[in-house]
């Protein structure tokens, strides 16, 4: 059973209200050689609905490993709250969460680490740096075994 799951492709969830940023993230992931499926969310509520399988929209599938790239300043529910809820859930807390935000305020960084984010990336304005950061993340994703969420599928 384990071996089947390991071959399961990681789905990258991008939660960012800025269409441009989301597109740049995708392009750079591809340029870094990562062709994983990407699901985009425009606010914190949508990504929570997906993960917690609420509402009318798309819902996560059991036995699929997810990686979440999470912006902080978003409408409806902000990234900090999304992170808090994910890490407070006994099943979802295994989801890899990378904060990807323009905020480099040390207090904000500390808060995300306290809440259990897996890493924290600052969106640099310098495009080269940004591409590099995404590439690093891509390497990280391809190398690290992303644990799948407990097979106890949501209703």
């Amino acid at each position: 059973m384990n071996s089947i799951q390991m071959t399961q492709e990681v789905v990258i969830l991008v939660a960012d209200d800025d269409n441009g940023h989301a597109r740049l993230i995708e392009k750079n992931l591809q340029r870094a050689g990562l062709h994983n499926p990407v699901v985009r969310f425009e606010n914190g509520q949508d990504v929570l609905d997906f993960l917690f399988a609420h509402g009318e929209g798309p819902r996560r599938k059991p036995d699929v490993p997810y990686l979440l790239l999470l912006d902080i300043r978003m409408p409806k529910v902000d990234g900090i709250e999304v992170l808090r809820r994910i890490k407070a859930d006994p099943d979802l807390r295994k989801v890899h969460v990378s904060m990807l935000t323009t905020t480099d305020d040390p207090r904000e960084v500390l808060r995300c680490h306290d809440l259990g984010c897996n890493n924290y990336l600052v969106k640099p304005v310098d495009y080269e740096k940004f591409a590099e950061a995404i590439k690093q993340l891509g390497m990280f994703i391809s190398l690290v075994q992303v644990p799948e969420i407990n097979s106890r599928a949501p209703a």
Partner: peptide, 21 residues
């Protein structure tokens, strides 16, 4: 000042990013 400097950076990421594109 704090909020503005964050929110103003956000569009810059796009301007810089897409001009590179």
């Amino acid at each position: 000042v704090y909020v503005a400097s964050h929110d103003l950076r956000s569009p810059l990421v796009n301007v810089q990013g897409f001009s590179s594109e």
